[in-house]
Amino acid sequence: MRAFGFICVALLLVVAGCKKEDAKTPFEGFASPANFPQPTYNFAGNAVTEPGFLLGKKLFYDGRLSRDGSISCASCHISFSAFSHVDHSVSHGIDDRLGIRNAPAIQNMAWERFFFWDGGVFDLDLFSINPIQNHEEMDDTIPNVIAKLKADPEYVRQFKAAFGTEDVTPTRMFQALSQFMCMLVSNDSKYDKVLKGTATFTSAENLGKVAFEQKCASCHSGILFTDRTFKNNGLSLTGDLGRARVTLNPKDDHCFKVPSLRNIAKTNPYMHDGRFSTLERVLDHYASGVQNTPTLDTLLKQNGQLGIALTNDEKANIILFLNTLTDETFIKNPLFAQ
């Protein structure tokens, strides 16, 4: 059986190799990397197809999803910064309005259990309605957006190609956007290449990896570099209650999603409100800036000490290691870029 599989793969490779010369790479659909956990997205209800992905991509880059045509999803989720809003602390939306939180990277969405910094949305298909209708972001209404799409024969054609009929519905729009976002898989950083044995860390990166695993990986754990929970990481408090807005549980006051650190060097500024402009500032916070607030995560006050003990060398090496999580293949993938 295994040999048969191997032969099939070999044949596929041969076929793919042949095709490459005369045509573009065939669309491969969604594939979970072997060393990633089970995806959480329900692909059974919305399998990724090439026309669905292309429709989602068109929608993602289309300003018509906003009231005046000025803001697309890509306005705040830019491919070259791993689909984050580099250099913007909080979202900048329509009419120069400001949101309250930092636009996070869109990557490895198929493994995400919750969306938003407070995890208020638990299904990727239910996510996109938010920025489209949010007053500070795109400020349109779904019926109005659907009317705009219906008026464009190219959209009607693409909805038909993706879903079988010409019905342009909100559900299909959201599903197409999910198909595009689920395809945004980042797993080809230097870190991944080292795991595969096709690259090696420098000695400083290695030291950084050791320090990272000792001091950061309790929360930023596993191949996705997040334990996918919500924590208070010791920031000075603002009025944003974070996870408690959703759970109404005071234990969750000021807790925010532990983000993945993949492509972290490309997604500055940092934290839920983008308060730290550099990774150096972030590590300084963990080393010496942690505030002892009531819901502070216990990992940040062990043995009566606030924060994480970090020497300057450790900080520098950790940043070198974090830089190995940058995935140029992903960031520059023409399949995803506008």
């Binding site: 208020g120 299904d123 239910l126 959201f174």
Partner: peptide, 27 residues
């Protein structure tokens, strides 16, 4: 309340029938 989007039609469609009766930010 937690069913896939495709199973929420009519008055349960968050974008249409349930518009105004659905918390987008806190599904």
């Amino acid at each position: 309340s937690t069913a896939p989007l495709a199973e929420r039609t009519g008055v349960l469609d968050p974008a249409v029938g349930a518009a105004g009766m659905y918390w987008m930010w806190n599904s």
